[in-house]
Design a protein around this nucleic acid. Structure first.
Lengths: 210, 210
DNA sequence: CGATAAATTGACCGATTGGTAAAAGCTTAC
DNA sequence: GTAAGCTTTTACCAATCGGTCAATTTATCG
C-alpha cells in the first residue's frame, strides 16, 4: 500500500521512476515559488499525474520538499568538501570558485531552492546549517587560516572569504533574471567564462596570490 | 469611499497612518514568504486590522506588493546613483560597498523582499530591471571602464564587478540565517565591521587600488 | 449640534488549498 | 489462471485563499 513502507523493503521500478518524476517537477515548482507559494496541484500537473497519485508516493507537501532538500544539500557541499588542505592555495581556491560557478550554471533550480529556503528563514534545514554545514566550514576555515599564517595568501577572515565566494557564484543562478536584464544581449555566449575570469581574478588578486 | 480616489485628492491623517501600518506589516510578511506565499489575512493580522479594512486601503494583494516594491526600488538604487564619476576610484568604490552593506544591515527586510521577487523571476518588476536599472548600471559601468582605461584601477569587467558587490553585500541580509548558523556566537558584536573590512580589502586589492 | 463622508466590521462568496476514502485497475509471482 | 499486492482514479472533505457586500461606527466640518 504505502510504498515507502512496503513489505519487500525494495522499491519497485515504477516507484523509482515516479518518485524521480515527482522530484523533478517539484524542483521546478519549489525553486520558483518557495515552499509556501508552491502547491501540490501544480507539482502534480508538472509531473503529469493526479494529485492523489502523487500523494501516494509522498504523503505530504513537506515530504517532497524535504526529499528535495536532502538530496540537494549533499551535492551542494561537494565542492567545499573537495577543498584540499594539501593542495596549494591558488589552485584550490581557483577551482573552488569555478566549481561553484559551474553548479550555478548547471543546477540553477537547486540553487534557487536553497536560496528560497534560506531566505524564508531556513525553517526546514536549520539543524543542517548549524550542524554539518557549520562543521565543514569551520574545518575549511582552519585550512585557509593556516595558509594565511604560512604567508601563502594575504591574511583575511576565512569565513567572510567563503561567504563571498558563495555569494558571488550563486548570484548568477539566484539573480539570473536581474543579470540577464542588465547585460541584455551583451556577450550572450561567453557569459559564464566572463564571470569565471572576473571572479578568479578578483579573489586571486584580493588574496595577493601570485 | 475609496481612499485613493477621494474627492479631496488629499490623504487623511488616518489614511496615511493606516497605509503606513499596512506596508510595514506587509514588508514583514512578503519578505518572509514571497508574494505567493504571503496571505492577506496574515498581513491584516500583523497590521492589527480586519481584512476588509485592509482591503479598503489597498484593493488587492498585488497593490500592496507593488506599493512596497515601488517605494523600495527607489531607495535601493540610491547608493549606486550616488556613485560619483568625478570622485576617485578608491573612495567611491569603498563607500559604495560600505553603503550597500549598511543597507543590508539596516533594511534586511527590503533586501529580502527584493531577493524574493528576483528569485521568483521578477514577474512584477521586469520592466524596471530592463529599463531604469539597466540604464543606471550601464552609465556607472562606463565610469568604471574609464577609470580602468586611465590606469586608475586594474582592467576588469565593470558589470561583473557591480554584480559582485551586490552579491557580497546583500548576502548578509538575504542569507542572514546561514551566516548566523555558520558563525555561531563568534564575534557577535563586530560582525558588520568584520564583513566591511573584508569586502573593502577584497575589492581594493582585487582592483589593484593602492 | 447635525449632516456628510470616511472608516470599520461581520457575514459571506466562489475558488483553491492540503489531504483522505474507497473502490477500481494493473502487475507480479506462484 | 488467480490471488495478492501495487498503482491509479473519482469523489470528496474541511480549511483557507483573495475578495465583496451591506450595514454600522466613527471622524470631520460647517
Amino acid at each position: 500500500m504505502i510504498p515507502r513502507a512496503a513489505k519487500t523493503q525494495r522499491r519497485t521500478r515504477i516507484q523509482e521512476e515516479k518518485e524521480e518524476k515527482i522530484l523533478e517537477a517539484a524542483l521546478d515548482v519549489f525553486s520558483a515559488y518557495g515552499f509556501r507559494g508552491a502547491t501540490i496541484d501544480q507539482i502534480a500537473d508538472a509531473a503529469g499525474m493526479s494529485k492523489p497519485n502523487l500523494l501516494y508516493y509522498f504523503r505530504t507537501k513537506e515530504a517532497i520538499h524535504r526529499a528535495l532538500l536532502d538530496r540537494m544539500l549533499f551535492t551542494w557541499l561537494e565542492p567545499l568538501r573537495a577543498f584540499d588542505p594539501q593542495g596549494n592555495p591558488e589552485s584550490e581556491i581557483r577551482s573552488y570558485i569555478r566549481r561553484k560557478l559551474e553548479m550555478s550554471r548547471d543546477f540553477p533550480r537547486e540553487s534557487r531552492l536553497f536560496a528560497n529556503e534560506i531566505l524564508q528563514g531556513a525553517p526546514h534545514i536549520e539543524d543542517e546549517l548549524k550542524g554539518p554545514l557549520k562543521a565543514l566550514v569551520d574545518e575549511k576555515a582552519q585550512v585557509i587560516r593556516a595558509w594565511a599564517k604560512a604567508g601563502k595568501i594575504a591574511p583575511c577572515d576565512p569565513y567572510h572569504l567563503i561567504f563571498s565566494i558563495w555569494a558571488t557564484t550563486q548570484h548568477y543562478a539566484d539573480f539570473d533574471v536581474q543579470v540577464q536584464a542588465v547585460l541584455g544581449d551583451k556577450a550572450g555566449g561567453g557569459r559564464f567564462e566572463d564571470a569565471a575570469r572576473f571572479l578568479e581574478d578578483l579573489f586571486m588578486h584580493g588574496l595577493a596570490i601570485k
